[in-house]
Design a protein around this nucleic acid. Sequence first.
DNA 1: TTGTAGGCGTTATCAC
DNA 2: GTGATAACGCCTACAA
Lengths: 342, 342
Amino acid sequence: MQRPTVNDIARAAGVSLATVDRVLNARPGVRDQTISRVHEAIEKIGYVRDVSAANLARQRHYRLAFVLPEGPGQFLSALRDAIAEAAQRSIADRTDITVVSVPAHDPHALARALNALDCDQIDGVAIMAPETPHVRDAVKRLKDGGVATVALVSDLPNSERDHFVGINNVAAGRTAAVLMGRFLGGRTCKVLVLVGSMQARDSIERRLGFDQVMAEQFPSVDVLPSIEGHDDAETIGRVVSTALDAHREIAGVYSLGSGNRALTDCLRGRGVANDLVVVAHELTPHTRDALNTNAIDAVITQDVGHVIRSALRVLRSKSDGLEIVRSQERIRIDIVMKENLP
Amino acid sequence: MQRPTVNDIARAAGVSLATVDRVLNARPGVRDQTISRVHEAIEKIGYVRDVSAANLARQRHYRLAFVLPEGPGQFLSALRDAIAEAAQRSIADRTDITVVSVPAHDPHALARALNALDCDQIDGVAIMAPETPHVRDAVKRLKDGGVATVALVSDLPNSERDHFVGINNVAAGRTAAVLMGRFLGGRTCKVLVLVGSMQARDSIERRLGFDQVMAEQFPSVDVLPSIEGHDDAETIGRVVSTALDAHREIAGVYSLGSGNRALTDCLRGRGVANDLVVVAHELTPHTRDALNTNAIDAVITQDVGHVIRSALRVLRSKSDGLEIVRSQERIRIDIVMKENLP
DNA sequence: TTGTAGGCGTTATCAC
DNA sequence: GTGATAACGCCTACAA
């Protein structure tokens, strides 16, 4: 009652191992008649290829790289941690993972880093970066060099990446809006929107989705123009305070980038943290803590572990020329509140 | 620049392959001195065992079984589908999966099915069933027979199961309550609670968590006693209608079991589907559809794919006597609304 | 067009 | 205690 092997096929079809292998791997040099005989045997005894054994024999190793922006930020550290953990596990799985860090907000350094990747030394790359012409060119070079490429967290829609691993940010913004609107409970009021920088496409998309839903479903809420915090604690404190002073009717804050620590500090400092409805993105130690203390009401996030594991699966499949199961690689938009904190 | 193998260790330590293997697998019959010599070599050249090769040589096969209640129900079908998909993928992974269906609500049939499992023919079992003394005994028998056992979706806290794969239902109920309370927006009103049968421990726990939060945070909402639908469409329609007639102030419905199809049909029939705040459990084609048509406002769910894959990982690890990474096996409480529908 | 033989990294069964 | 040596299921020269 063992699982059938290539030997069983060979015997059943009355041919040799090599012929079976040629058929299995669709290699040339076999008569059509023999091919069908082998296929029949495969069907009949229900053969399923043992992938590990195949990879072992093939000496297949996957050399993958992650290109990430440098800098702090708890989301990035979480991503790095997830990569480190995956790398640890993957080493037993004939997969070597390298992390390339590039200075943030430096398109040229990014392009240099991407162009420094040797297509012959690498099977796949996951890139987290804003899209620029340089990046597009670099991705094209990788593709031409036969390297599988995925965009990570932030899509590169106009580049020839093989896949995007991350959430739909318009939908994420819409989700934030529904929570905000419903938590505000139909009040006539204003909502502050805090953003890192207006440039980032993620922020633009989230804001877009947020505005759509607020306009459609919660017309009594006035969504103020975005204020930019530039990922800087002091700046965030200042602009948020200024806005709160200017608009007394503010009942909610939507934070769609990083800088949640500075935001909640500011709100706590003014003693309004528990009164305002605050919706933020990305589950980090800070936002987790803020949920626990009711300074943030809901967090929209994506599971970084899933993101990384999906990227790895996709890169391996693509570099083998296999198709992926798209449904399985869809990253979910998670809603986290104090009560369902993982 | 290849990855080091057992041969490299053998050469570096000046011993044979067999000795290296004995050390690697902690088998007896090696001098302490030799052991440390080998360990040093392993450290020095940074060896990591190739799991696929090991499994290949070991001829290890995992024979796992899922014991599930019979009957319809979209959650169960989703679970079955997920198992089928996992089985499909696992066949290439030396794992054979069997599904055992037992009549629902029949403790003796369940016990018989569990006792029919041959401990020598099976490595692990995942059980989805209510806990009874018979089940406890059956689980004990499996454990004594060296079979790994996990409880699936519904815990068996007093049995000697190795692990529970599923969500904390008290927390799930609390999550439902926060959404319900906040979506009701501070109104003074009543909430209907619909349950399949009051017996199921999942339902009891969810109701418990729900009541906790409603009492603590939303005292203006009156949560009515549970009404039982017994998973029967007609019954559900009747009891829900009766309750709605009896209490005009009902503004929300919490459905904590199955029967969501009948519930939404009833609400739609009365034309109140869009006015009431409805929170339900488990994402199925019906609840998905109801979210899209605004008949349900939020669904608390768990990813069945994750549940099954986690169960498989845990069963494999446990049957190898390995410890699991608990954090990685934690199933999340997912909140799904129309806007973040996967 | 087909077959033979050896090897991938690990484990297991023998001898010594 | 230790070491050859033959599997495991598959792939790939090289022969025929």
